[in-house]
Computed example of a mutant assay.
Amino acid sequence: MLNCSVGISSIVIEEAIGIHRELGPGLFETVYETVLAGRLEKRGLRVERQLPVPIEFDGHAFGAAFKIDILVEDALILEIKSVEQLSKAHAKQLLTYLRLSNQPVGLLLNFSAATMREGIRRLVNNYKAE
């Protein structure tokens, strides 16, 4: 088990690149999510898929306001995409997930990029609640 998000990120990126090389771009996000989760578990990492995250807003509790595609070792959120090009909205979505789930780091992985390296964005939660 790894505690360092940098080490975890390295393993995730290595596996994502391997999956992209083997399967290629253009499949549904759920395919990449399933295969990546399996590869990470095989590497000995604790993985949770489609993890519902509750939030409280304006005095109301919402049980499953959103779902995290993959949470690795309770420390790294993976948002899986299979789109022609990542947009600012995708990054904003992951940053909001990081903030609302109080997680420090996330990876936005777009498996439809020409190369996987082009489809990887690392985002850091710099938000501090007062």
Rank of each mutant, 00 (worst) to 15 (best):
M1N: 06
L2R: 06
L2W: 05
N3K: 15
C4R: 13
C4Q: 12
C4Y: 05
G7K: 12
I8T: 06
I8V: 15
S10K: 10
I13P: 00
E14S: 09
E14Q: 10
E15T: 01
G18F: 00
G18A: 07
I19K: 04
I19H: 03
H20I: 00
H20A: 00
E22Y: 06
E22Q: 08
E22H: 06
P25A: 14
G26E: 10
G26T: 05
E29G: 03
E29A: 08
E29Q: 11
V31F: 05
Y32A: 08
Y32F: 12
E33Q: 13
E33G: 02
E33D: 04
T34L: 03
T34P: 00
L36V: 04
L36E: 00
A37W: 00
G38L: 12
R39C: 09
R39S: 10
R39Q: 14
R39V: 10
R39F: 07
K42A: 09
K42W: 05
R43I: 04
R43P: 01
G44W: 07
G44T: 13
G44C: 06
L45S: 03
L45T: 12
L45I: 15
V47K: 00
E48K: 08
R49Q: 14
R49K: 13
Q50D: 08
V53E: 06
V53L: 10
V53R: 11
P54L: 06
I55H: 07
D58S: 13
D58I: 13
G59P: 03
G59Q: 12
H60A: 10
A61Y: 11
F62I: 15
F62V: 15
A64N: 14
K67S: 09
K67V: 13
I68P: 02
I70W: 00
I70S: 01
L71C: 02
L71F: 01
E73Q: 14
A75M: 13
I77R: 00
I77Y: 01
K81A: 02
K81N: 03
S82K: 05
V83S: 09
V83Q: 09
V83R: 08
V83F: 06
S87P: 01
S87G: 07
S87L: 08
K88R: 15
K88Q: 14
K88S: 13
A89Y: 08
A89E: 15
A89I: 15
A89C: 03
K92I: 07
Q93I: 11
L94K: 03
L95N: 14
L95W: 03
T96G: 12
T96W: 06
T96C: 10
L98W: 00
L100N: 08
L100P: 02
S101F: 05
S101A: 06
Q103G: 02
V105M: 12
V105G: 02
V105I: 14
L107Q: 02
L108G: 04
L109R: 02
L109I: 15
F111M: 11
S112A: 10
S112I: 04
A113T: 13
A113M: 11
A113F: 05
T115Q: 13
T115I: 11
T115S: 13
E118Q: 12
G119T: 03
G119F: 02
I120H: 01
I120S: 03
I120G: 01
R121I: 09
R121H: 10
R121S: 11
R121N: 11
V124E: 12
V124Y: 07
V124L: 06
N125F: 01
N126T: 11
N126A: 13
K128C: 07
K128V: 06
K128G: 04
E130R: 12
